[in-house]
């Protein structure tokens, strides 16, 4: 795999390979020394054209746990604000020879476009309202840990589908993993003909009890101002996931950050059914797995397996997954932020 641009281009085997690798990395996260030398001397460049704390932080942490160098580049306060084009920015930053560029933009297809302009592996961290593949991978990872397998599960994705890249990537990922997906939300926020993705559409939550998993999307306040729905109050009355609507055996997910009292009631957000924190936790190991998949030297084979030995450097010891702590490279230490 050269880039991670979308879930659309992944098959089930590729999703399983990344998720399985993430499971192996999760063991590392439980150790006292959480850093491994797998990507030592590799450079990961985070290029973010939209505000993001958790996705960017999660990628940064993932890269550092793999001992990669990390450079963060945000649109505000940079040449981008002076009118530099995406292409010129990418070409300029490519002069630093990053091994991977993690890219978030407000434009569909931007990650695929950038992959044609430079040699680095491109990780799409969100392109407009199109896709957010690492979010979908971590959702699959989290759900698979909770359910064992996703095959046959009924998953309802509820809320503002129209403006959600998470929804698009999740529909594709869940379906590739064997689930049945239903999209539900106000008719003004469900794109016409989205059924072509293979999912079903509902405009009420009447059949929500049939779901095994309820995935609530964030309802952004600016959508209210654009009158996609009459009011927050009316939205909450019809689409909020709360204790009346959620059955005890259903699993609740959310990509964060949560608007309490809007798409979720506080009580369900804090209930043991909610696996929202597990999703955040999964973000780091799944992004480690993605960076590892794209950057680890001489990765071979489609099966998850031991880390190949070819990538060792003399100081990496006998196992790439061995703690790098012996050399004192703790998380984030000495890394440019």
């Amino acid at each position: 795999m050269k880039h991670l641009l979308s879930i659309e281009e992944l098959d089930r085997a590729a999703i399983e390979r990344i998720v399985s690798q993430a499971e192996r990395f999760s063991e590392v996260s439980d150790r006292e020394i959480k850093t491994v030398p797998a990507l030592r001397n590799r450079m990961v460049l985070n290029l973010f054209y939209e505000a993001s704390t958790r996705t960017r932080g999660s990628f940064e942490l993932a890269a550092k746990r793999l001992s990669a160098d990390v450079v963060n580049f945000t649109a505000s306060g940079s040449s981008v604000e002076k009118g530099e084009s995406l292409k010129d920015t990418v070409l300029t930053l490519s002069a630093h020879k990053p091994d991977a560029i993690v890219l978030r933009t407000p434009w569909a297809g931007a990650a695929a476009l950038v992959s044609q302009w430079c040699a680095a592996a491109i990780v799409n961290a969100g392109d407009g309202k199109h896709e957010h593949p690492t979010q979908a991978l971590l959702d699959v990872y989290t759900l698979r840990r909770r359910l064992g397998a996703i095959d046959g599960a009924s998953i309802w994705i509820v809320g503002d589908v129209a403006h959600s890249r998470v929804a698009r990537s999740d529909v594709l990922a869940f379906q590739k993993m064997g689930a049945r997906v239903t999209l539900a939300g106000p008719p003004t926020l469900i794109p016409r003909e989205i059924e072509a993705l293979g999912c079903e559409v509902r405009y009420t939550l009447d059949e929500l009890p049939s779901a095994d998993v309820v995935y609530a999307l964030r309802m952004q306040n600016e959508r209210m101002e654009e009158t996609w729905v009459p009011s927050v109050r009316e939205y909450a009355a019809w689409y909020q996931i709360n204790a009346q609507r959620l059955r005890p055996e259903q699993i609740l997910m959310h990509p964060g950050p949560v608007n309490r009292g809007v798409e979720l009631s506080g009580e369900v957000a804090d209930s043991p059914q909610a696996i929202i924190t597990a999703q955040v936790e999964a973000g780091v190991v799944v992004r480690m797995a993605v960076l590892y998949e794209l950057l680890a030297p001489n990765r071979t084979g489609l099966e998850p397996g031991p880390v190949p030995a070819e990538g060792r450097t003399p100081e990496s010891g006998t196992d790439d997954l061995a703690p790098a702590g012996a050399r004192g490279a703790g998380v984030g230490e000495g890394q440019p932020a």
Partner: peptide, 15 residues
């Protein structure tokens, strides 16, 4: 154009 393709791409469609 608004339709199947715009829905899949997440691009706002023009009916």
């Amino acid at each position: 154009n608004e339709g199947e393709v715009s829905a899949a791409l997440g691009i706002a469609g023009i009916p």
